[in-house]
Write a protein that binds this DNA or RNA. Sequence first.
DNA 1: CGGTATCCGTTGAGATACTG
DNA 2: CAGTATCTCAACGGATACCG
Lengths: 126, 126
Amino acid sequence: MDVSTLPPPVTHESDTCAVVRAILARVGDKWSILIVRMLGDGSMRFSELRRSIEGISQRMLTLTLRNLERDGLVERTVTPTTPPRVDYELTDLGRSLQSITEAFGRWAVTHRDQIENARIRFDARQ
Amino acid sequence: MDVSTLPPPVTHESDTCAVVRAILARVGDKWSILIVRMLGDGSMRFSELRRSIEGISQRMLTLTLRNLERDGLVERTVTPTTPPRVDYELTDLGRSLQSITEAFGRWAVTHRDQIENARIRFDARQ
DNA sequence: CGGTATCCGTTGAGATACTG
DNA sequence: CAGTATCTCAACGGATACCG
């Protein structure tokens, strides 16, 4: 058996940390999660996303979608009509991320008060 | 029964999204997850963290720890000796976050290759 | 409609020096 | 040892204008 083909058994955790950190940096930006969640209900076109995500600029929507597409989380489909039509939908990879963000969402909702209270107490001490 | 006292039953998901986004922004920064994971093994003092987290500056370690403390994820204990000793450890709230970050970590490790390949293909198309 | 390109203010984060 | 203060530069992100 060739040992070199074994997955590294997480000898030093920093590897894993670096990966987690990279993913979080990717999906932890201002708009990615919001977009992934919106697309969770099915394919949407650019202007739909733009309208349904309050406060996002056209530039940031484009940039965020490009990054998600680059990472293989979102697929972009162009229909070259006039006017052009561009649809976005989650890939299998993108959908696999959903359960994680949902777990995160439940944690956030469950603990939001604890965090809020901790902040109030902390700020009061200063 | 006063309807106004009922928690909003997530009529529109944007509320939840905002919370998730805020938490991700908090814990999705460059160093927080790394610190939470280091502290997962038990209490550590400032200089220990500094040495074990490669590349972090003293300033960013201080700032990140302060933010984690403010949100109630980390507890700071000062022992006023000379030289002073400051220990950091996860609170219950911080530990409750661990299972989430671990799930995230498993997802990241499992799909890192898919993401990497998606990037390579995307960049090749440009 | 679905983008790019450009400008510009705000924030993030490293380097360095100083302090109780 | 465990910070704080200051400086600096880069990245993020909004506003606006233009294009196929």
